Measured scan of single mutants.
Amino acid sequence: FIDQHRAALIARVTNVEWLLDALYGKVLTDEQYQAVRAEPTNPSKMRKLFSFTPAWNWTCKDLLLQALRESQSYLVEDLER
């Protein structure tokens, strides 16, 4: 899901800070967390977050999807259609 809908997630996720907090310490290191937060816009934050995903396994991507479902369920539901 995460890889399949990358472009839509970059464009449409609005609550990136919540995602970062949910992933911090589980998937994201402090350095990665700070790097994403330093980006000026939500799309650039999501691009930076996605720059780390090639090194993630399915469990990490599932944690991101779970966080998306909790914070932006309407968006996930729309993309699952």
Rank of each mutant, 00 (worst) to 15 (best):
P43R: 13
Y74E: 15
E17F: 00
L79Q: 04
T14I: 06
V27M: 04
D21S: 09
L9V: 00
A7R: 12
R47G: 05
D3L: 01
R12T: 03
L19K: 01
C60S: 15
L23D: 00
V16P: 09
L79W: 00
L75A: 04
V13C: 14
Q66W: 02
P40G: 08
L23I: 06
L28D: 01
S44G: 13
L63T: 09
H5M: 12
E70M: 07
T41Y: 07
R69L: 07
V16Q: 01
D62S: 12
P43N: 11
E17T: 10
F50K: 00
R12V: 02
L28V: 03
Y24R: 15
F50Y: 14
N42T: 09
L79E: 03
N42A: 12
P43Y: 06
R6E: 12
N57G: 11
A55Q: 13
K48L: 09
E31A: 11
D30Q: 11
Q34R: 14
A67G: 04
R47K: 14
Y74R: 14
L9I: 08
L49K: 02
V13Q: 03
T29E: 08
Q72H: 14
L64I: 11
L28C: 01
D21L: 04
V36E: 02
S73Q: 14
P40F: 01
Q32I: 03
W18Y: 15
P54I: 12
A38R: 13
E77D: 13
T14A: 08
E39T: 03
T53S: 13
N15G: 05
D78V: 08
D30L: 13
A22R: 15
T53H: 08
D30R: 11
Q34T: 10
A55T: 13
Q66S: 10
A38V: 08
M46P: 06
A8I: 11
A8N: 06
K61H: 14
V16W: 06
F52H: 05
L19Y: 15
N42F: 09
R37V: 12
T59Y: 13
I10C: 05
T53M: 14
W56Q: 05
Y24F: 06
E17A: 05
V27Y: 05
N57E: 10
V13S: 06
F52Y: 13
Q32N: 01
L23P: 04
A7P: 08
A67I: 09
P54R: 14
W18L: 14
W18C: 14
V76W: 05
R6L: 09
E31W: 07
R12G: 12
L23G: 01
E17W: 05
D78I: 12
R37H: 11
F50D: 00
E70Y: 06
P54C: 11
Q72M: 06
L49V: 02
R69F: 05
T53D: 01
H5E: 08
C60R: 10
D62V: 05
P43A: 13
A35V: 09
Q34K: 12
S71H: 13
Q34Y: 09
G25D: 11
L75Y: 04
E17S: 06
R12C: 09
L68R: 03
N15R: 09
D62F: 11
A35F: 02
G25P: 15
K48H: 04
F1S: 08
V76K: 05
G25V: 03
N15T: 07
S51A: 08
K48W: 09
